[in-house]
Structure formats: C-alpha cells, structure tokens
C-alpha cells in the first residue's frame, strides 16, 4: 500500500518569496498537500491568504491552511475557503482549530473565552455551517437562460437556515459551489472526544509508535483518513540530525536521522492503517531534505506513488461530495 505524504509549513515569514519557494518545492516533489499553520496573536501572516498567494504558482500540491472557528465568522470562513478552492482548481482544504486562549479573545474583544465544551460545540456548528454554505448552490445553478432572462435557477440556490446555540446563518453562500463541492476538512486531534464532534475528513494524529497508531486508527470511523504527524530532522548522517534535534519536544513523535531511516520508520507504521504521514520539518532546510532526499527513497521503496488525481478529495480517496440539497441526495 502506498501512503499519502504531506508537509506542515509553520513559517512566520512575511516575504512572499519564502512561501513560494517552499510551496514550489513541495509541488515539484508531488507531495499530496501542505498545511499552513496559523493562530491569532502569533507573529506571522494570515494562512488562508498565504495559501491563496501560492495557489496560482503551483499545480499539484493540495493547500490546507489553518483557520480558527472561535473568532472568525463561519460565513467568511466558508467563502474564503471556497474561493481558495476556485483559485487552486480543487486543491483546497481547511485545518480547523479552536482557541481557548484568553489573549486571543482580547484581540477581538467580543466576548470572554469559551470553555472547552462550548468551544467544540461551536466549532462543530461552524463546520456544519461552512459545509452547508458550500452546498447552498447546486452545481447546475447557473443556467444563463437568455429566453427567460435568468442567469441562475433560484430553485437551485438554498437557504441554509442554520440556528445553533452560538449563531445563526441564513445563506445561501455568495460564492458558487467550489470545484471539489466540499473542500477537504482536517483537524489535529489528541483526544477522542474531539473526534466525535467535528464532521471532518482528515485527522492529524500524534502516535508515538506503530501500535499507538493502530489503536488510534481503530477508534476512528473507517471512512476517515488518518495522518500521523512526525517532526523530522533529516540529514545525510544521523549524528548531525540528532545534534540539530537537541532537546526538541513536541506533541508528535520527533525523528532525527537519515532519509533512509525515516523511510524505514514510515514503512514500519504503514500496517497501522494510516492513510499517510504529515511531516513537520524541524527547520526550513528539513523541507528541502524531505522533497529532495526522502521522497525518492519512499518512491523507490514503493511507499509513495505521486497521485494522478487533480483534486485533493479524489487524491485522498474521499468520495465525490454529493450536494445535500440536490435531488440525488434526496433520493439516496
């Protein structure tokens, strides 16, 4: 079985050239997707805009920015991500994050921080609203019917009429349904109770070895795609990598060694049932080591086969997103 390979970009550069070169490296190595880290209050650019900035300059790689549901309007999230999908021709994803940090709440000043339970109820609602808005236009809503003078068939546009505990959203979206129908939604998760609530397609998880990876995969619904996060320090000789790793600690496993050793570790985790790995470069040079040195080894060992699918959904083996408001959905 081949795995899907992703990389996490966590840079804080404001220079477009840095992002372009990182994204192009990943694109040329035919990685499946890259994620763009973000949080309010950090020093760093807005991740959705960075992803969009590199979209026209890449052809293959999926673009998955982090965006937080706690403070951003679900309506804006939905339209921004739909637009990223249009701009990238179906390569967009979204890594959902919540914020429990009072300092982040102060930046917005709109309300006190929510407790853990409310945060996730609200995030689940935001995901639901975002998904409904993406479906609020049927794919064939635009008719351009000169005889009747109608540009759209308004029966194929749908109010989403969402009413939750924390907000209501009327809809429909102002953006036509994006190319993937439903861009890919992902979440990093360390705890089972989070998994149950969010309607996401991809989980980033942090196993320490193949057994813990297998346990996590078993706990999750079979149709979800599980990616194991690994922080990587890659060098031609293991000593250099270990020296660079130093005392690095992380929520994820931290690897230091050669590309061949990392390929060995990934091969060892493969039987756990993970869909792939998301490699978090320990330093910017580690991205280059991933794309130039690791990827050829993985390909040689049959652990990675670049995808020929053009959309991120398809590449991850996610089913075609049937529009919940369409006649097909009603008949299903």
């Amino acid at each position: 079985m081949t795995l899907r390979i992703a990389a996490a970009l966590n840079g804080d550069s404001f220079d477009a050239a840095d992002w372009i070169s990182a994204a192009r490296e990943a694109d040329e190595a035919l990685l499946d997707f890259i994620t763009f880290d973000d949080a309010f209050g950090r020093r760093g650019p807005d991740a959705v805009l960075v992803a969009s900035r590199v979209a026209p300059l890449t052809r293959h790689v999926g673009l998955v920015p982090v965006a937080t549901t706690t403070h951003t309007e679900p309506f804006h999230l939905s339209t921004a991500l739909a637009t990223l999908d249009w701009v990238s021709h179906g390569r967009a994803g979204w890594q959902v994050r919540v914020s429990a940090d009072p300092a982040e709440a102060d930046l917005l000043g709109r309300r006190a921080p929510l407790g853990f339970d409310d945060l996730f109820t609200e995030a689940a609602d935001a995901v639901e609203v975002v998904r409904r808005l993406w479906d609020s236009w049927e794919d064939d809503a635009i008719i351009k019917d000169v005889a009747t003078g109608r540009f759209v068939d308004r029966d194929k546009l749908h109010y989403v009429d969402f009413a939750g505990e924390h907000f209501t959203v009327k809809g429909p979206s102002i953006v036509p349904r994006p190319p993937q129908g439903q861009p890919v939604i992902a979440a990093l998760t360390h705890q089972a109770r989070v998994w149950e609530r969010l309607d996401v397609d991809v989980y980033f998880v942090t196993p320490s070895d193949v057994d813990s990876a297998a346990t996590i995969v078993r706990q999750l619904p079979a149709r979800k795609k599980v990616f194991a996060d690994i922080v990587v320090f890659l060098d031609a000789d293991q000593e250099t990598a270990i020296r660079r790793r130093g005392a690095t600690t992380s929520d994820a496993a931290v690897f230091a060694g050669t590309p061949a050793q990392l390929a060995g570790l990934i091969a060892g985790w493969e039987p756990s049932g993970i869909a792939g790995v998301r490699l978090r470069p320990g330093a910017p040079t580690d991205l280059t080591a991933i794309t130039r040195d690791l990827v050829p080894v993985l390909r040689e060992r049959g652990l990675f086969e670049p995808s020929t699918a053009t959309t991120l959904r398809e590449r991850l083996g996610l089913p075609v997103a049937v529009n919940r408001y369409s006649p097909e959905a009603a008949n299903a």
């Binding site: 477009a16 372009i20 959705v48 805009l49 960075v50 969009s52 900035r53 590199v54 979209a55 026209p56 300059l57 804006h76 339209t79 921004a80 739909a82 637009t83 990223l84 249009w86 701009v87 236009w137 635009i142 003078g149 109608r150 540009f151 759209v152 068939d153 308004r154 546009l157 429909p172 102002i174 953006v175 036509p176």
Partner: peptide, 24 residues
C-alpha cells in the same frame, strides 16, 4: 423576497482572490 436571478450571481471572497492576483 426572492433571490434576484436576472443578473450575474455569485463572486469570490474579496481578500482571497486578491491574494491570488498578487501572484500574477
């Protein structure tokens, strides 16, 4: 009370599309 259907309907999110235009 009905969605206006005679003109062009639908457009992208402003900032996201501008960021992409910066690339070209």
């Amino acid at each position: 009370g009905l969605i206006h259907d005679l003109d062009v309907v639908g457009r992208p999110d402003t900032l996201t599309v501008l960021a992409a235009l910066a690339a070209v």
